[in-house]
Design a protein around this nucleic acid. Structure first.
Lengths: 114, 114
DNA sequence: ATATAATACATAATTTATTTATGCATTTGA
DNA sequence: TCAAATGCATAAATAAATTATGTATTATAT
């Protein structure tokens, strides 16, 4: 699948929001949820997903719990407190982005500050 | 100004839409319009803008008219036919992106395909 | 008069995120 | 029993944007 260029820069927001909603999730599960929610329109690739999760971990925005399922491992990710704060920030940024893009593409949505 | 990561990948869409609306514009003018429309929240930098315009020109999505204003030059950009088609495509991609992001961040916006 | 800000273009080096291409191993289902 | 799905991972290459410059003209404020 070829995702649109527009998703560049959105992965962290998506990850944080899903973790905020689900309490704990593992990587593969996240790719599936994203695929479902977007009706197959967005496919997170592993090459983007895992480095992004690792970076969130390095930044202490998520913490990891390793669980063995038979002989296979799962790494569950859970938001830290800092991660929850960052989620709020990222969601506000997304709202701002969408408002501005809406104004840029639709003159009817333009409004001056009073 | 520090723009959000989310704008990465959106510049071409913004340029095409503004050119679609204004018939012809020059670079500096575009930065000003974007700044105004977003109430100062998005500042296109020259380092992003000019290479993007040059790339659109290489792809024959825009054509250029050079105008001298006194001793200074302006390069007006205008959509080609291919550029107009590409604009439609990019706007559809943006709508799809926003729909999917909306669904990802707000469970109420999720809907299964019938 | 003169300095500063605004107008107007440009590019090169660096950074960063993502894509593409792999790799390995286990488990499920056809 | 073979393919697909599950589940992790990383490395090289690509592409977009940031940061840092550069040049020159014109307008404005002191």
């Amino acid at each position: 699948m070829k995702n649109s260029n527009l998703y560049k820069g959105s992965i962290v927001t998506i990850l944080l929001k899903l973790l905020n909603e689900h309490d704990k999730m593992y990587g593969y599960e996240i790719t599936q949820r994203v695929f479902e929610i977007t009706n197959g329109e967005l496919k997170l690739t592993e090459g983007a997903l895992y480095p992004a999760l690792h970076k969130l971990e390095d930044q202490d925005l998520v913490e990891v719990e390793i669980v063995k399922i038979g002989k296979r491992i799962r790494k569950y990710y859970r938001l830290t407190e800092a991660g929850t704060k960052e989620t709020v920030k990222k969601l506000a940024e997304l709202e701002s982005y969408m408002k501005n893009m809406r104004a840029l593409i639709n003159p009817k949505f333009r409004e001056k500050l009073h």
